[in-house]
């Protein structure tokens, strides 16, 4: 087991800013950690907390959520609604014992390719240090096991 642990991270991003930011990072040939699977959504307001739970349910070690800076929302205030929701959901996850380090939030605009690459790198590094989310994957394994009578 000398191999370094490669976390699997799911990123939910808004198409109008962070996704375009990711594109910019790509076209600018910026290198960033390949651990992130990006899922594009029409707005941060569309990112239901259920998505975060679903990602964890499918074995993600970390989840990223990113969208337009306050004031820049394509739909004018989707990100303001999202921000409140995250605040509350974050507190809930923390209280239940799902470490806040595993679920990260950011604002990244279409012009911030560099910020995107750095964000991905730093989060990947942090989650690599934390290691696999064993407490949760153990629940997933249990759920898969045949029922004992």
């Amino acid at each position: 087991m000398s191999e370094t642990f490669e976390p699997e991270i799911i990123a939910f991003v808004c198409t109008y800013c962070t996704y375009a930011g990711a594109d910019l990072a790509g076209t600018s040939r910026l290198k960033y950690a390949p651990n992130v699977r990006i899922i594009r959504l029409p707005c941060t307001g569309r990112i239901s907390p259920m998505f975060i739970l679903k990602a964890l349910q499918k074995g993600a070690d970390g989840v990223l959520i990113s969208g337009c800076h306050p004031g820049d929302c394509h739909f004018t205030h989707g990100n303001y609604h999202a921000r409140r929701r995250w605040m509350v959901f974050r507190a809930l996850l923390d209280f239940i014992g799902i470490p806040p380090e595993r679920v990260k939030y950011s604002w990244i605009s279409a012009a911030e390719g560099v910020k995107f690459a750095e964000f991905i790198n730093s989060v990947t590094e942090d989650i690599r240090k934390l290691g696999p989310f064993e407490q949760y994957t153990q629940l997933i394994d249990q759920a898969k096991a045949p029922a004992s009578l």
Binding site: G71, Y80, R83, R84, W86
Partner: peptide
């Protein structure tokens, strides 16, 4: 609902 100046200390 929301306020434009809601807390966002946790957002990077």
């Amino acid at each position: 609902s929301f306020k434009k100046d809601d807390s966002e200390t946790f957002i990077l």
